[in-house]
Write a protein that binds this DNA or RNA. Structure first.
Lengths: 344, 344
DNA sequence: TTGTAAGCGTTATCAT
DNA sequence: ATGATAACGCTTACAA
């Protein structure tokens, strides 16, 4: 691999001048700059950013930690962040935690060892408090949290409008005439799910409906868990569900179909995360679009702009078949009917 | 940030000894090793891998270049590669090309600048030959290609059994009694698609059916393109399609439904890439599972084991509603009926 | 405008 | 078993 020293030798000058020339410094003669650039190209020189970063004490790598990369929601966030960061000359190092706390800690340590410029993170379900994270990432590395955040951890945060979204989704179910609305609540270790539960409760109470803890099904995230929870929900006399996750909702639909329950006539369902499959199912699933790509962009910008505030990304209700038994819609929340734009 | 020099000073020894102790060298007294380790922990020392890598002239970063990270197929490949590489102490730097040649070249240069240990790549549609790549990545950095590969580029390759898969998928359509089978062929700039077309052709010809170029619809990859191609296919009298991509197949189904064509009674369809949504649609889509996670694992292992051969990952036909108008199945290719395990 | 020299944090090769 | 020293490739005061 050719170095600036090689170029310097070839031109009979010193490495410093080559460095300056290549960096576009004004303190170098036009003629030598041209000569250096020509020689560099000729010799196939490519700057060793590892060495440069060591010297400058900074890197142009941003670490992103997500529970699972193959979740559409997270891969879209990564895509959004990557698009912004690339523009700004950064590259992204990706780590998956597989929802495990140990992996999350390991990933944080790895990224610290690489002296990354920043860490963008959405916490694992298994990660329950911010203590370890505080220890690992100190004042040195900015940490930007998204989606699943710890409020007590300083630094920028990008979250969905969880409470609002859940509120409107549940309100929508109420307006459709469903009477006994349960919820697949997810994991209470994560604030995002706590907020969604709060929104659900608020909608019920402001409509004069009772909040019944026996209709709240906890620890529901993946398809199987949704299936099992729907079984209990039906046994408890539910006629609708607000699900705080798309895959649990999918599992719920699995069970309801199996049990011969008609959707939306006898049972309504709305869930978060407008995953591509939701619009393709029969019945198509009503969802809350969380705009993951925009969340990723916002998180990246929060780092670039050195922000420390909390940004809330609005959710958008997509009303589809699974919750629409009354045709006429009069509803305050902005929405697209039967949105089907995915992968167009 | 605390360095080995800090630790050395604190213990009244030299950095070399600290380095050796931390590296677990046998040429250091047990007692000092313990002391160093204790001090390092106490001071919160974390090794600067950037400096270490510079000195050792190698990095533990593997670059992965994919067209689009949010495609389930590619994010699963990344997941597979990541799982293997993490085990071996490597981290992954991810770049998206968005199917553009320029981005691909830029990504390769970036990864070379980082002196990554290897590059795993699946080429952009816009990238049509291996010339530029050969120039950028020389003998220095091993390059492992997967899915979309250039045969003339040296190094390990991991590909799907494109020809076989397309052959069996098309044969299946023939066995189901479809007579005029077209194909959404994808882009001929990519070998994977060329091979699929060959498999399709082989199946037709070995069944004594004519290969008709007017039933081959090129440049079909995304949903819209599939929609438009299906329009032409129907106009050309097709009664079935083998699609070399899942999203183009989705678009085709969009159109066929709109046109009131019954699937699978009047029209059969099979596609590659067993994306999650395919089993959830109505009708559910028959697909060729390409085992992307395993492809990613294989690519990572190919690097770790320093291989230079081409591995072929078999495809598996999942027969679902979109192609099954004859109930009884007698078919040589291993398959799962109505597989519905996704996100369970 | 250019050269000199030091240093980023680590590891490797000598000595001792 | 440990220390001294140099080097990885680059940047940057400071000096010339």
């Amino acid at each position: 691999m050719v170095t600036i020293t090689d170029i310097a030798r070839a031109l009979g000058i010193t490495p410093s001048t080559v460095s300056r020339a290549l960096a576009g410094s004004p303190r170098v003669k036009e003629k030598t700059r041209i000569a250096v650039e020509r020689k560099a190209l000729e010799m196939g020189y490519e700057r060793n950013v590892v060495a440069a970063n060591l010297r400058k004490g900074q890197s142009h790598i941003v670490g992103i930690i997500v529970p699972r990369i193959h979740r559409e929601f997270f891969s879209n966030i990564i895509g959004g962040a990557e698009s912004v960061l690339n523009q700004a000359g950064y590259n992204v190092l990706i780590c998956q935690t597989m929802e495990s706390k140990d992996s999350e800690i390991k990933a944080l340590k790895t990224l610290r060892n690489y002296r990354v410029a920043a860490v963008l993170i959405s916490h694992a379900i298994g990660s329950t408090d911010s203590r370890d994270i505080k220890e690992i990432i100190g004042k040195d590395i900015p940490i930007i949290q998204f989606d699943r955040v710890y409020p007590d951890l300083p630094g920028a945060k990008v979250v969905g409008a969880n409470c609002d979204g859940a509120y409107f989704a549940t309100k929508h179910l109420i307006q459709q005439g469903y009477k006994r609305i349960g919820t697949l609540a997810g994991y209470m270790s994560s604030l995002a799910f706590v907020e969604r539960l709060a929104g659900y409760r608020l909608a019920l109470e402001s409509a004069g409906l009772p909040y019944d803890n026996s209709l709240v099904f906890y620890d529901t995230l993946v398809r199987d868990q949704g299936y099992e929870a729907a079984k209990k929900a039906l046994a408890s006399g539910c006629d609708a569900l607000f699900s705080a996750g798309a895959f649990s909702a999918l599992g719920a639909v699995d069970y309801l179909k199996e049990a011969g329950v008609r959707i939306p006539e006898d049972f309504g369902i709305v869930c978060t995360s407008n995953e591509g499959f939701t619009s393709l199912m029969t019945p198509s699933l009503s969802t809350l679009e969380q705009h993951p790509f925009e969340m990723g962009q916002a998180a990246a910008k929060a780092f670039l702009e050195n922000r420390a505030d909390t940004q809330v990304i609005p959710m958008e209700l997509h009303i589809r078949q699974s919750s629409q038994r009354i045709q006429q819609e009069e509803f305050s929340c902005n929405h697209l009917l039967n949105n089907n734009q995915w992968q167009k």
